[in-house]
């Protein structure tokens, strides 16, 4: 049995101005097949990826923001958002998608996937990773 590694995907770009956010999401979903310990971090403009109420009809590109809600189906339940990045942009957690997952071990209790963490806490999380991908 190969050892399970800790994978962190670091997202630091806003969603529709470049291809990074969508590419990251696709890599995350494909990579989920490998049954590793996956978490996502949203830092700097990356926090804009999780904004509620995105509507891309007017700019003619796919709105992939609903796809973040599918992450829990792929057993990706550790989504870290840096508090400082939110604050710098005048945002609160309520401005973000309400991402949740159901905990099988606790009778399918619904839990938040998003954890707003300080730079200090996120630094600790980064330090514990085996593999870090940047987008």
């Amino acid at each position: 049995m190969p050892q399970i590694k800790k994978f962190l995907y670091v997202n630091r770009k806003a969603p529709h101005g470049s291809i990074y956010a969508l590419e990251s999401l696709e890599v995350v979903l494909v990579g989920a097949a490998f049954d590793q310990d996956v978490s996502l971090a949203f830092i700097d403009d990356g926090v804009y990826q999780l904004m509620l109420n995105q509507n891309t009809n007017g700019i003619g590109v796919k709105n992939f923001s609903p796809t973040y809600r599918a992450l829990s189906d792929y057993d990706i339940n550790q989504i870290y958002v840096e508090k400082e990045s939110l604050e710098l942009r005048g945002l609160k957690q309520e401005d973000l998608l309400p991402l949740t997952w159901e905990d099988e071990d606790e009778d399918w209790a619904e839990k938040d996937s998003i954890q707003v963490v300080s730079s200090e806490e996120l630094g600790d999380i980064i330090d514990k990773q085996d593999i870090i991908f940047n987008f």
Binding site: R12, E84, S119, L122, G123, D124, I126
Partner: peptide, 14 residues
Amino acid sequence: NSLDTCLRLAKKGS
């Protein structure tokens, strides 16, 4: 802002 973000998040000793 890569440098600023890195300095904000990098743990002491890294």
